[in-house]
Design a binder for these strands. Structure first.
Lengths: 217, 217
DNA sequence: TATGATTCGGAGGGTCATCTCCGAATCACC
DNA sequence: GGTGATTCGGAGATGACCCTCCGAATCATA
């Protein structure tokens, strides 16, 4: 899966520098940003960029894989929380914080969908999230009509606040708190509209490119 | 402000067709999509594109202005609701629905920020939204610690669900319902963290490009 | 330090998008 | 229908970007 790491120090340093600058560049200008610009920012020649990443997609793929790795590192703490509700809190907080601090991710994800139509963003996380939701609902703290997909979508929503730039970061916790209050189980709640989705149908749905249904349906 | 509308029918028809196709094209491929492709999709020659829009930015600007106009048309119904709470509901629902159905908007907004650093997205709407929040809080239905900016940010979050494509649209009402439940005033709520912002400081904040503060602060 | 292997830098060919230009076509008006 | 003004279409000049290539520089190893 991973290309071998070079034994030369300059090669390792350049590879790392290119990844760092690519994240910044893709965040600012999208994944279509000129790679010549990447070379300039990283302080290397254009040829060096293409030695490390044969083409743009290879670079995107590596950023994606590294991101999935970072997420995997977040999982243990979230799943080991004392209560199910605390797990839900941590899930939303940690994931959204990670997303908001990694503004290159949406661009990379979009491109990944074009490169490889049947990649599954974070497929390995579907099962633990399902478990987390069941646990919190079993203890009666999480409203019973939400699904794991609903939570994942909420994470995306919160993460989209990264678009405002780093200065807003301390404030998105307000939106997080509002969402969490909306997720608590309460006796007088009216149930959520529509049917809950599972990850499979959600994936099919969000990758279909067909015409949108009539508005107001 | 607006360029004069041509008196020739073919010119008006082409102008309209170009706007329609530009919205689709920008939604699919971003504002950097080739304008030659726009010409093909609209069934006109490349020269015609540049007759109507001297450059890409002129096209972006017109799409932005038209969007603001559509929002203005939404305002009366939202503000005329019977109760303050219903006004809040309509505000979130109508705006987020509009955003989710207009997937070209985020791309256009981002580009607008680059073209014209001190444009104010929807500045004219700040005052009515403030009024709407005060009304709902006065009647005791909206939690007292949210601000108009919080609501506007929530709209952006909900609108970002347009990224999943039209097929998901019937389902974002679930996230809307969760957010609304989190916004209701309740006796036992813990107050939102951090300070509420007004539109002016929020605008400064979200357009500053400086380095992000240390995470975890 | 010497040596061979690996990596670097950046000039340049090929490709694609932008935008101009002007003869041909279309339109509004009479 | 005739007429002048406006708009259309698409070929082509200009410029940007992608990616390759190879002599020069750097590195690991002994």
């Amino acid at each position: 899966m991973n290309a071998a790491v070079s034994s030369r120090r300059d090669a390792r340093r350049n590879h790392e520098k290119l990844l760092v600058e690519a994240r910044k560049l893709f965040a600012e200008r999208g994944v279509e940003a000129p790679l010549d610009e990447l070379a300039v920012r990283a302080g290397v020649g254009a040829g060096t960029v293409y030695r490390h990443f044969p083409n743009r997609d290879a670079l995107v793929r590596e950023l994606y894989d590294l991101g999935v790795g970072e997420l995997r590192d977040l999982a243990p703490e979230i799943l080991a929380a004392e209560t199910g509700w605390r797990s839900v809190e941590l899930y939303l907080e940690r994931l959204a914080e990670w997303l908001a601090n990694a503004p290159y991710v949406p661009a990379v994800m979009r491109r990944m969908g074009e490169i490889d139509p049947d990649y599954r963003p974070g497929a390995e996380f579907a099962e633990p999230i399902d478990g987390l939701v069941e646990r919190a609902q079993a203890e009666g703290s999480l409203r019973p009509d939400v699904t794991a997909v609903d939570l994942a979508v909420l994470v995306d929503m919160l993460g989209s606040l990264g678009q405002y730039g780093g200065t807003y970061l301390p404030y998105w916790r307000r939106q997080l708190a509002i969402v969490l209050d909306g997720l608590r189980a309460r006796p007088d709640l009216t149930p959520l509209p529509g049917a809950g989705l599972d990850f499979d149908t959600f994936h099919d749905m969000s990758h279909r490119k067909g015409p949108r249904p009539a508005p107001g349906a």
